[in-house]
């Protein structure tokens, strides 16, 4: 080894310098670091506070009567808006919306689970490719996908022509503008929200517990019901909750596929009446948000407890 152009530091020297660095420089750097992080996020935080959080304050103000329906400040607290909204027809609307959302959720689970299961069992290469195939249409406009479904399943559409051509039925089998078409279209659109969380848990599941089940003599069906299904519960919970909440608020798909009669759900009510009666609709929005939140929490608790028992 040649000689160093600088004197070799002793261990003590290095320790002293490190100590000085920790005492003098590090705290300063850390404070700088934090300030820098805050500064970088500041524009977005300000933006979202003004254009996302603050607007919600106005939903409260309108719902509790501080503003009247001609957008004037009254300054008085009142529950009149809730009175006018909490009627039998609103309850019916809620029930109908929850009913549609419930069936959509169940169907997504039923039709989505096999796909997630298949995806998780493939090689990495194949899996990546299939995931890509799944995600691409998911990011194209749901409006247009609904539109496409409508043309295909229309009374005179392709599906009915096909069935007639192969002699299955002379009468149109599929029709749009009913509750069934609303449910199918929503299931079709929201499916990825179910498949992706399911896939995430199935993929992470350890092979050894499945193998153990086989080794201990369980059959395929038993293994699925008693090992795979319980272990995928977190994914099932996340997926069903996601699909349910999203379909509760959906309004474009129902009104396209269900028409005025069947496609008038909760979201449509707010959408159509927001302009003329902002007060009552703000009250309805609040009730809606509260109910959705309560459902979400209750569901997570129940499912969590059931999960422990399984």
């Amino acid at each position: 080894m040649g000689s160093f152009p600088w004197p070799l530091a002793t261990i003590q020297d290095v320790e002293r310098r490190l100590w000085l660095f920790r005492i003098r420089k590090l705290p300063k750097l850390e404070i700088q670091d934090r300030l820098w992080n805050v500064a970088l996020s500041l524009p977005m935080v300000v933006f979202l506070s003004v254009f996302f959080i603050l607007p919600f304050a106005f939903v409260f103000l309108y719902a509790f009567g501080f503003y009247n329906s001609s957008y004037q400040w009254t300054g008085n607290f009142s529950l009149a808006n809730f009175d006018s909204v909490l009627t039998e027809s609103t309850v019916d609307l809620f029930t109908k919306t929850a009913y549609v959302a419930g069936i959509v959720t169940a169907m997504s689970l039923l039709f989505g689970y096999p796909v997630a299961y298949y995806l998780a069992s493939q090689s990495t290469e194949r899996r990546e490719f299939l995931l890509m195939l799944l995600i691409i249409p998911f990011w194209t406009s749901f409006l247009l996908r609904t539109f496409a479904l409508m043309t295909i399943f229309h009374e005179n559409g392709l599906m009915n022509q096909l069935l007639e051509a192969i002699g299955v039925s002379r009468e149109p089998v599929f029709r749009t503008r009913n509750l069934v078409s609303v449910i199918w279209a929503e299931t079709y659109t929201f499916m990825p929200f179910m498949v992706l969380p399911l896939y995430a848990t199935l993929e992470r599941m350890s092979r050894s517990s499945i193998e153990a089940s086989y080794l201990l003599g369980a059959g395929r069906i038993q293994t699925f019901l008693r090992v795979i299904l319980p272990l995928s519960l977190p994914g099932i919970m996340a997926g069903t909750l996601l699909v349910f909440i999203i379909s509760m608020g959906e309004l474009v798909i129902p009104s396209l596929t269900g028409g005025v009669q069947y496609g008038y759900l909760l979201g449509n009510a707010i959408y159509e009446r927001a302009g003329q009666s902002p007060g009552p609709m703000a009250a309805l929005s609040l009730v809606f948000m509260v109910i959705v939140t309560v459902i979400a929490f209750a569901y997570l608790r129940i499912a969590g407890r059931e999960g422990l028992r399984l």
Binding site: V45, F52, P55, F58, I270, A274, S285, V292
Partner: peptide, 25 residues
């Protein structure tokens, strides 16, 4: 950060849209 970023994706869009109209007003 996560709460602020995820909220706009979770809140039903119809409620979000309605609230921003009230704010614009």
């Amino acid at each position: 950060w996560t709460a602020l970023i995820l909220l706009p994706l979770i809140v039903p869009e119809i409620v979000e849209a309605f609230s921003i109209v009230l704010f614009y007003q």
